[in-house]
């Protein structure tokens, strides 16, 4: 009897570390509570700053970079691309609400027509194709710069991803993303949650681990190790490769669903991208 009681207690304590079908709102609440308990001295909004929420020395260097950050080059280039009309005379502004400015907080969203998650990068390429232009490669270059510029114009806006209650397919996409986050993969047999939830607060070699909440606020991010600005999906590719799993394609259904779940876990945070990271 006591044994059963203990097992139940342990199971309850691990709520935040195990995938349970409780609905997005309850998931988010559980996740926020989990980190608050784990880091009682960290102001919740600080989680948007990744490992710089915990590591004083790294934070100081990060702030020095942010004083005149290298991603400003990409933002400026992105603005140039964004404002260059297509061959048919239309431009990116014509594809988006509010002329494409200050709108990143609405991405990703679930498109009920196609029953797929639409990310901002995907929408940028859809815009190009609707206007007779070739889609751009996702991992680096022009598309990342455009996304960086659009993120820059959206700074300070509150992330507000919706999983509509009346659309079971949207919930299924969210659940698929959540499943991905908690699924072990690769030769190292790590799930995203193995590091970012279970051992958060510790370090991977010299890197403190960032929290799930606030994890997507700052993308696209300029990574000093790569010396360039990268999209969230390129980061997914890298994370999967680091646990020696075969990465999925950028904008694959898997990564779109993952972005849907992960961005929902940052609901309520202000967008602060682009940002620099090691």
């Amino acid at each position: 009897m006591i044994k059963v009681f203990v097992i139940i207690l342990v199971a309850t304590g691990l709520l935040a570390t195990q995938p349970v079908s409780a609905g997005p709102e309850r998931d988010l609440q559980a996740m926020q509570d989990f980190y608050q308990k784990r880091f009682p001295n960290v102001a919740p909004e600080e989680f948007a700053n990744g490992l710089y929420a915990f590591d004083e020395g790294a934070r100081e260097q990060w702030l020095e970079l942010e004083d005149f950050p290298p991603y400003e080059i990409a933002v400026e280039e992105g603005e140039g691309y964004f404002n260059t009309p297509f061959a048919n005379g239309n431009s990116y502004a014509d594809c988006f609400e509010n002329n494409g400015l200050s709108i990143k907080q609405n991405y990703p969203y679930f498109d009920s027509d196609t029953s797929k998650v639409v990310t901002l990068e995907l929408a940028i390429n859809q815009c190009r194709e609707e206007n007779g232009e070739q889609p751009l490669p996702y991992l680096r270059g022009e598309l990342t710069a455009i996304s960086a510029y659009m993120a820059y114009t959206s700074r300070g806006n509150t992330i507000n991803v919706q999983v509509p209650n009346d659309n079971p397919k949207a919930l299924a996409a969210y659940e698929a993303g959540k499943q991905f986050y908690y699924s072990r993969r690769g030769q190292l047999n790590f799930a995203c949650s193995s590091c970012h939830v279970q051992v958060v607060g510790l370090s991977l070699r010299a890197d403190p681990i960032s929290t799930t909440v606030g994890q997507v606020t700052h993308f696209p991010a300029y990574r000093t190790v790569w010396g360039e600005i990268v999209t969230l999906h390129r980061r997914f590719v890298e994370c999967n490769a680091q646990v020696r799993a075969r990465p999925f394609e950028s904008q694959s259904d898997e990564y779109r669903n993952l972005e849907y779940f992960l961005t929902y876990m940052s609901n309520g945070f202000e967008l602060n991208g682009p940002s620099s990271r090691r």
Binding site: S203, L204, A206, D207, R223, V225, E238, Q242, R277
Partner: peptide, 8 residues
């Protein structure tokens, strides 16, 4: 100069 877990 440290070796990163995820960055390095």
């Amino acid at each position: 100069v440290t070796i990163g877990g995820c960055g390095g």
